[in-house]
Design a protein around this nucleic acid. Structure first.
Lengths: 358, 358
DNA sequence: GCTATGGTGCTAAGCGGTTCACAATTCACC
DNA sequence: GGTGAATTGTGAACCGCTTAGCACCATAGC
């Protein structure tokens, strides 16, 4: 059978019956254009080896039949998977109500989408599971790198990821990130600004309702808080699991103590809102009798009355920076630790001058 | 060179120098076990064709050297990508503050993880982009199927996905899902229960602060609401973009009208919280002068004072069901539309008997 | 005329795993 | 002792794409 006839028959087959089931490949393009697969590969990847005329013809055909590179086939050639991973280890209820992660993800994806990278997401129940997920993803060549969040002290995940030799960007304080490259924002500055502001308003007894003590950034804030208050105000810190319930309980404890604080700083906004409700319930007027500051400024902080003074951060930008650095790392560039902008205090109605309550 | 020497040398090489760079393959296992690649493949996939003794030996070696199947190589064999996609088309700020999606994702992943499926996530800015993302993922064989959320009327995405012939589970009302299989919960029941409850409490003027009117489920609720109120209460619906700000504005408008409602039903909890704040600001006491009901019961509803009466749904379970159906669809099973549990009214402090305010 | 040069396009091999068809061995049965 | 079947294993081909490495044809230079 002459070559021409074979070619025609093949084209006829791929034309309609197969189209919906089978996706076009470079072989289809090659047979249509009357060239080899290799020429098509070069043409579509902008590599030298084909004339401009041929390249144009090939590209036109590829467009016409709606060809897209098969990611698996590409990945198989030692190429990248064009995919990065993120595993989140928090219960669903907490994750849902914490705007932080969704905003972070949005920011990350803005950057990834530009370079047609995809994001693989998994919600896990424990750090051990998280390590496993990373190991699996990496072992299966599904991803080129990962983000690591919610850093702990002597975090087993750091060692594990170092062992795997996979590109990682730690979103958290570099003191605990080992050899992994980190991106963080200086919590100390934000804490100092907040405490300074409250002290300037006359507060001398300040409480902090913090997140989980095993998280590095909680401890960093703890220390910065203690240090900033040193000599200028009495201070106390209570740890919680970030849920509204625990935030409310801590607030109740604080407000019913004999020497109750005149200001409370919360580690997230759901706890701040819960605290505000408890205060109102206990007839402690905000901001007259109690000032409230929320860490992380989500829309939530602005819809309650009074609106919450909050530590504002551009979280999507934070995520975007992290993504840029992870992609750089994957590209083989060396990436020094990067300090993002610190949170900025946005005063609103929930803070005011300290009353002579004590 | 004798075979044995070659084998030894190879093992030596793969032992340390290469290990961190190059992941083990079935060829490595095969050479170690002294069998062919095929035997290894059968052994590791639990397929017949190898003796139990050999299988055990192969599995042991695989475990020992930490082998994992290369997902790209598997996907290349016409096999599945073991990955499904989800694109969300909402601004970052809204997504962050809406617990719905994170809870949905958690639920989805519980099921996916069990079958070692991964979830590809992308946040997009428009429906057109969303279709493009699906087309790309599908064209690149990155995914085996997708979830479609936030259904519109005459939604272009439905047609697009039908055209692609890709497995899809629509999370939303089947009336607009075309030939795609849908999973939804009956909003009508929930609306009727809510209105019935409010009417029983004596409310005769009920308002609804709804989400975006282009969303199918908004309209379904709109109609059900109008119908339920028919003959028993005056009713009005205001549409918003789901943000707290618009929720607040709508509430302000409602409460300042001459014949203001004695009860307001909100389409999500952030708007309900915003509405509550506006009411308190306007000295409209909740629940004495105004009853408030929130759709979707997140922790947020319980931390404000009074805690919000809410329409409770097990969203993770909803996501889990959706995931099960998508996997079934991918496996080639036919999947009829599925009606999930309707939301249940959870009465809390924000609702009470209607006062003779009018 | 013959060799350098370069552009263009090909063939072949291989990424890691699966699948098919067939070969070798054992065992049972008539 | 020969036939048939089951068990266990193999080589080869293939999935879609990339990457050498080489072949071909022009033009240019001697």
């Amino acid at each position: 059978m002459p070559l021409g006839a074979g070619g025609l028959q093949y084209e006829g087959l791929s034309g309609s019956e197969r189209e919906s089931v089978k996706r076009p490949t470079i072989a289809d393009i090659a047979s249509r254009a009357g060239v080899s697969k290799v020429a098509v590969s070069y043409a579509l990847n902008g590599q030298p080896g084909v004339s401009e005329a041929t390249r144009a013809r090939i590209v036109a055909i590829a467009d016409e039949i709606g060809w897209r590179p098969n990611s698996a086939a590409r990945a198989l050639n030692g190429a990248r998977a064009n995919c990065v991973g993120l595993a989140l280890c928090r219960p669903a209820r907490v994750l849902g109500v914490e705007p932080f992660f969704m905003e972070l993800i949005s920011g990350i994806e803005g950057v990834l989408a530009d370079r047609s990278y995809a994001l693989l997401l998994q919600v896990v129940a424990s750090h051990q599971q998280e390590s496993e997920v990373y190991r699996h993803w990496w072992g299966e060549s599904r991803i080129d790198g990962v983000f690591l969040v919610d850093l702990h002290y002597s975090d087993s995940r750091v060692a594990e990821l170092e062992r795997l030799g996979m590109p990682v960007v730690v979103i958290g304080h570099p003191s605990e990130s080992g050899s992994l490259s980190a991106i963080w924002s200086d919590e100390r500055v934000a804490v100092r600004e907040t405490v300074g502001y409250l002290v300037a308003l006359g507060h001398r007894r300040i409480a902090r309702v913090a997140g989980m003590p095993e998280l590095v950034h909680t401890t960093v804030r703890d220390q910065a808080f203690a240090q900033a208050c040193e000599g200028v105000a009495e201070h106390v810190t209570m740890h919680t699991d970030y849920t509204g319930e625990e935030g409310a309980r801590a607030t109740r404890r604080l407000l019913s103590s004999a020497d109750r604080p005149t200001a409370i700083v919360y580690d997230n906004d759901i706890m701040a809102v819960a605290g505000l409700s408890v205060a109102q319930e206990m007839r402690v007027e905000v901001p007259r009798d109690l000032s409230i500051v929320a860490w992380d400024d989500s829309p939530l902080a602005q819809v309650v009355r009074p609106p919450l003074t909050a530590l504002t951060r551009d979280i999507p930008a934070y995520g975007a920076h992290a993504a840029q650095r992870l992609l750089a790392l994957i590209a083989g560039e060396s990436v020094p630790p990067y300090e993002d902008q610190a949170a900025i205090l946005t005063p609103r109605g929930s803070t005011g001058p300290a009353h002579s309550a004590a």
